[in-house]
Design a protein around this nucleic acid. Structure first.
Length: 266
DNA sequence: AACGAAACCTGCGCGC
DNA sequence: TGCGCGCAGGTTTCGT
């Protein structure tokens, strides 16, 4: 569900609330949610740090590393030690009796238990691209020239560029005045530069505003962003373009719902 | 090698 | 009211 800006805010909240907690007990209610688990493997480990890598949330423990991804609807809640919630699939109980719950209606989210020595050079983290702010225009443009997909699909490819999802891809292409269906190898260097600069800007502003909270549910408990109020095309089907007044259309690109102003975006 | 489609899941809103 | 369909902020796997 979340993209880079939402994950960044979730990570900040989790880090603040879970730092140095000691794991007392692990409950797994849906086995497919977790891989690499063995009995008692996490017991007595401390949460030393929580960081973001793209859309992944990484818990650094005393001996292991938890690599988690929320996918479409996964959420982490921190609560007292109370009965299991609907769609709760995984729980850590700490020595102070607080709990970290993983909630996911669609069961797409995953948590992998890894070792420090290989978590960065094995899937799923090994193939991740750089954040937009860490990419230089030469590399970005050269990578675009080598691909044969449309630009929107490329922006969603985490091996191509990191942390952009369906909302921000639409916003970035709108701001850059680029048709999401344009082939990447037809993008000019000037346009590539525009796309990269706008990627950095939009992700940065969205992060500062706590991300986007849409579809009525919160990204995690007590974690609502306000960037949804700043969206210029995404979810604005049949509404007037804020730049030219033209009707915003909804189309399919690479199987994903895509909002576009056909007048502004060429 | 690289692309598009299907698969993974559940729930909600819509049209008939 | 009830049913079927399409859709949902993502990634991996499969077939071509």
């Amino acid at each position: 569900m979340p993209e880079g800006p939402e994950v960044e805010n979730i990570v900040n909240t989790l880090k603040r609330k879970l730092f140095n907690k000691k794991i007392k007990k692990v409950d797994i209610y849906y086995a497919n949610v977790i891989t690499g688990y063995e009995d008692n493997i996490l017991d007595n480990q401390y949460i030393l740090d929580i960081i973001r890598l793209g859309k992944y949330i990484i818990f650094k423990l005393t001996k292991n590393v938890l690599v988690s991804h929320l996918r479409m609807e996964g959420r982490f809640y921190i609560k007292d030690n109370e009965p299991k919630l609907k769609h709760e699939h995984f729980r850590l109980t700490f020595t102070d009796n607080k709990t970290l719950r993983f909630i996911d209606t669609r069961k797409f989210g995953r948590i992998e238990i890894k070792d420090y020595n290989n978590y960065l050079n094995t899937p799923p983290l090994v193939n991740l691209a750089k954040e937009p702010k860490d990419m230089n225009i030469e590399d970005f443009y050269n990578k675009l020239q080598k691909k044969r997909t449309n630009i929107k699909t490329a922006l969603l490819d985490q091996r191509f560029i990191l942390s952009i999802g369906n909302i921000y891809a639409d916003e970035i292409l709108f701001k850059s005045k680029i048709d999401p269906l344009r082939k990447t190898n037809n993008i000019t260097k000037k346009e590539a530069n525009e796309i990269l600069i706008n990627s950095v800007e939009i992700l940065d502003e969205a992060t500062k505003l706590g991300g986007s909270t849409i579809y009525t549910f919160e990204i995690s408990e007590n974690n609502k962003g306000t960037y949804q109020n700043k969206l210029k095309v995404h979810l604005r089907e049949n509404k007037p373009c804020l730049v030219c007044g033209n009707n915003i259309e909804k189309i399919k690109v690479g199987g994903r719902g895509t909002y576009v102003c056909k007048n502004c975006q060429k």
